[in-house]
Amino acid sequence: MSNHHKINYVELPAQNIAATKAFFTKAFGWSFQDYGPEYCAIQDAGLDGGFYHADLKASQAEGSALVVLYSDHLEDSLKAVQEAGGTIIKDIFSFPGGRRFHFIEPSGNEFAIWGE
């Protein structure tokens, strides 16, 4: 299968790269490759990407794209987010095709996790 014109990489702002890395490592087991003090590449997350230092944040309400993760065990993922320091902004709700919740990570970016 060709990767031509496929989504290949996603970059997100991070007000505090160290806190963002610690959150995703604890909550989901992601790892990171640092490229200087203002950029880190996301590894082991399913889609390649990175966080760059900025005083911005990705929020669906502000028109940003929403990054959505998949979970085999949605309630366990919600607990992992909370234990890692994330803030739940939309508790688990149903939608056509499954259930999901939204959270904010330490740098203020909004993510969602869904499950069937």
Score class of each variant (00 low, 15 high):
G108P: 04
V81C: 13
A65S: 14
G97L: 08
A18E: 07
W30F: 15
A27L: 08
G63N: 07
G49Q: 10
F28N: 06
G50D: 07
G49A: 13
Y52A: 04
G97S: 05
A22I: 07
A45W: 01
E105M: 03
S64V: 13
G46P: 04
E105T: 04
G86Q: 06
L66N: 10
Q33A: 12
E62A: 11
F51A: 01
D44I: 01
S59Y: 03
H53N: 04
I42A: 05
D72Y: 09
V81E: 00
F24L: 14
D91Y: 02
I88S: 10
G36R: 08
F101D: 01
Q15C: 06
D91E: 14
D34V: 09
I104P: 00
F24S: 10
G36P: 04
L56C: 03
A61T: 13
E11R: 12
E62P: 08
D91T: 08
F24P: 11
G97D: 02
F95C: 02
E62I: 05
V68K: 00
G108H: 08
K79V: 03
Y70F: 12
R99C: 02
E83M: 07
N8R: 14
A80V: 11
D48P: 05
I17Q: 15
A22G: 06
N8F: 11
Q15H: 04
F28S: 11
S77K: 03
L12Y: 06
I89M: 04
L12K: 14
N109K: 11
D72N: 08
V81M: 06
P37E: 13
H102A: 12
S31I: 09
H73A: 02
V10C: 11
V68G: 00
D55E: 15
E83H: 13
E11K: 09
A14M: 07
I88A: 12
P106V: 03
G46N: 02
A45L: 05
Q43R: 15
A19G: 14
A61G: 08
Y52F: 14
L78I: 05
V67H: 06
F101S: 06
I89K: 05
T20K: 10
F101I: 03
V81I: 14
A14E: 06
